[in-house]
Design a binder for these strands. Structure first.
Lengths: 188, 188
DNA sequence: CTAAAGTTTCAGTAATTACTGAAACTTTAG
DNA sequence: CTAAAGTTTCAGTAATTACTGAAACTTTAG
């Protein structure tokens, strides 16, 4: 399989970026190719298009499957496996965010919780724990909030994004309205 | 300078995580140490605490300065430079997000814009451009929105996060209220 | 201006990560 | 059951990234 220059430009770029997004160059290229190609393609097609070894493709596909970013397809009367990118772009973004959360925040959160259980041995540790608490609260906030956003679903997220600079105003509005009902769950 | 076991645990962990957050192990450790330590410390203190070469520390400090995450301090009658972490945890998070946006999204956005200017040569490219447009719009949305969030400032962000699952409800509320005033900037 | 006290740079090397391609394995048509 | 067509694994190697430490540089007290 041969890529047109346009497609190649995108695929190659996505490879470079991929390494910043948590997967390696080849995996990034593979995923770009699968997103951009309408029909399912075989592992051999991928290896050929990207000039990469068959084994490497196999490992990359495994990783993309772990991220749930691709689907397999079987053509009738054909023993080969064909692959296709999975779900909408929104789904993809969600998967990537979720995966990164797991890798980048969850382990730190759990370590911070452990450390915060110990009582500080001296004043330095006391200061340190104060900072750790801040970091912990921030991370927890981000994690909770992003899972919240995911639960909203694409349509509402879209509204929220469109809102743009209006977010502040809406928040003010909400404050005024809620004064009558009373706040729900403020902590200290 | 010697670290207590508690501090060491955090510093080492942050080093491991650092590599997932866009800087290398040593830089992560250095930053953790600076955050967790109240008083400004010298480059030598850092090298000693982390058992790392002086040169490596120098490079790491340079990087942290580029990220604007640390400040230098000068003690009177002392020629040495002392370093301290800069700003609140919120500031730090903002810096990290911003830096990542620059590295991870901006280049892709500009490439996508370029590609989308070309007209598709065949039906495959047409399909591809459709997908590229989707990716572009998504990235643009995220970028715009995150800069919006940054502009809100910590207090409102805090409100927004506390809102948690309430976000959906507030959005509904807003829709109802705005029906009278009319929508502001819908596209299409 | 000198030299002591400090910082930065960078060539060489160590450590880590990614990739190849052959061998082992799996699946299925016949 | 056999062998052809395919996939996966993994030891060895290539490529990349991070680190050391000595040499070059900079700053300032005296």
């Amino acid at each position: 399989m041969i890529m047109t220059p346009m497609i190649e430009a995108f695929v190659m770029h996505f490879g470079e970026m991929g390494s910043r997004w948590g997967f390696n160059r080849t995996v990034g290229q593979m995923y770009a190719l699968l997103v951009i190609t309408e029909d399912p393609i075989s592992a051999n097609d991928i290896a050929e298009a990207l000039s990469v070894s068959r084994g490497n493709v196999s490992m990359g596909l495994k990783e993309l499957q772990a991220w749930q970013l691709i689907q397999t397809h079987h053509k009738p009367a054909d023993r080969k496996e064909y692959y296709q990118s999975n779900g909408s772009i929104w789904d993809m973004a969600n998967r990537v965010f979720e995966e990164r959360r797991k890798r980048e925040m969850d382990p730190t959160l759990s370590l911070l919780r452990d450390i915060l259980l110990d009582s500080p041995a001296n004043s330095k540790e006391e200061y340190a724990q104060g900072k750790l608490q801040e970091v912990h609260d921030l991370l927890e906030g981000i994690v909770k909030w992003s899972s919240e956003l995911q639960r909203l679903g694409p349509e509402k997220l879209d509204t929220l994004m469109r809102l743009g600079s209006g977010v502040g105003k809406v928040l003010d509005m909400k404050d005024k309205l809620l004064q009558k009902t009373g706040p729900s769950d403020r902590n200290t």
